[in-house]
Design a protein around this nucleic acid. Structure first.
Lengths: 232, 232
DNA sequence: CCCTTTGTTTGCGCTTGCGCAAACTGCCTT
DNA sequence: AAGGCAGTTTGCGCAAGCGCAAACAAAGGG
């Protein structure tokens, strides 16, 4: 059964495409489900497909030869990922793990050239995604070079909340399970340091957190921490 | 006077283009000279052109609102740079400074769509460049998260030597002027730490260095330092 | 319902690498 | 030749944040 264009209309990846073009792009896609903690693709594996996340959250992880893990990014609903083909890479440079149950569209890489000519705007949007990620990553390098750990962690939590926040009666909660270890791997620190800082913030009334759960109760105060302008 | 295709034949950016296509691409380019320490473009400035470095070396620097500087990368001969247009950015995200006297080709951004249709391979090569830089930058994040300062600095020097090394009778020398401060800004450390480590390496006979000058005399030993496998 | 697994907290000591200061050196300008 | 500037070296002290260890708590499975 064919995929319905209403699934993806409004997504930035499909911006600027006519309805017919959307259908043409969807014609080569298939949809699949990935349960929590399963891998969509794996680092160094030959890249055969590219993906779009319809629902859920995906964690993209790089592992070093020594076994250290670093979280490259979280993918949010509506984003393209695994687009090695658009970067001329033959293998995936990282592993993509479903942080919650996910629904994913996938295209065989073989479809890429055809899509490029049929719907150039789709390709252009993919390239824009890559450009945005390059900027993000550069910013992260700058942050790691110039800010100290507390500011980096505060900044990372702020970004998670902005991109994947869900309003609750207590504040804004990151709407997928995330551990202290995960936050450490995003910021180049350790789970111990993250835990200590989050406990301190909880005492100050900035966040409330539990097992695999973070709720920001005072985003403004957290922003001040991120900018190192907290009074006291 | 028109640019000669022999200037750029063999450059990766022009791989896969016919001679006529190369001429067509060059037809919209112009060549200019940038003396040492002059800026090719400036951070947050509106991006009006993109560039290719014909000769020299260019330092790409990001400055934070607080005034801290981080070197994003060095551009080597034959590389594209300032390709904001291909990433859908309206401003340059960094400043490009000539590390030595440079010769640069530049195209107005307005020429981009035309080049895309006239010589799609040229566009594809640009996208590949961006993809490669994204991978580089991700690797840098991983390195900053998992390795300590000495290993990072050794790794950075190794890369500079591999990409821009010039053989001398003493070893391989980085063939443009580079200060301890520059190396610090590439690695997220300080000029003091860089200076101390380089002095130590000099005592071990791994490098020889002087004012704005670094020569690696024992690349293998430096590699071991980068991998933290130096004995004793 | 108990037990195992997984995630979190916290104390303690210590190392890495930074900050500050001061002196030094080579190079370029006048 | 003298002077100044830009880059480098080095000593000293310190603090941020890590490593280790141990205890605790919340899920989840059998």
């Amino acid at each position: 059964m064919p995929l319905n264009r209403s699934l993806v209309s409004g997504l930035p990846a499909f911006a600027g495409l006519s309805g017919d073009d959307v259908d043409a792009v969807l014609a080569t896609a298939r949809s699949s489900r990935f349960p929590k903690d399963s891998e969509v693709f794996s680092q160094d594996e030959e890249a055969a497909q590219f993906f779009l996340l319809l629902s859920g959250h995906i964690r993209v992880v790089r592992t070093t030869p020594e076994g250290d893990q670093v979280i490259a990014r979280y993918i949010n609903e509506g984003e393209l990922f695994g687009i090695a083909i658009a970067m001329g890479q033959v293998t995936y440079p990282a592993t993509a793990v479903a942080a919650v149950d996910c629904v994913v569209l996938s295209w065989p890489n073989a479809a890429w050239p055809g899509l490029q000519s049929r719907a150039p705007a789709f390709g252009a949007n993919a390239y824009q995604t890559i450009g945005a990620r390059l900027q993000d990553t550069q910013s992260r390098v700058v942050e790691m070079s110039t800010r100290q750990v507390e500011q980096r962690i505060a900044g990372a939590v702020m970004r998670l909340v902005q991109q994947s926040g869900r309003k609750t009666e207590e504040g804004v909660e990151i709407d997928f399970p995330i551990t202290r270890q995960d936050i450490a791997e995003m910021t180049g620190s350790t789970l111990h340091t993250v835990s200590r800082l989050m406990s301190a913030w909880e005492d100050e009334g900035i966040v409330k957190s539990g097992r695999q759960k973070v709720t920001v109760t005072d985003p403004h105060a957290l922003m001040l921490v991120a900018e190192n302008r907290r009074k006291k």
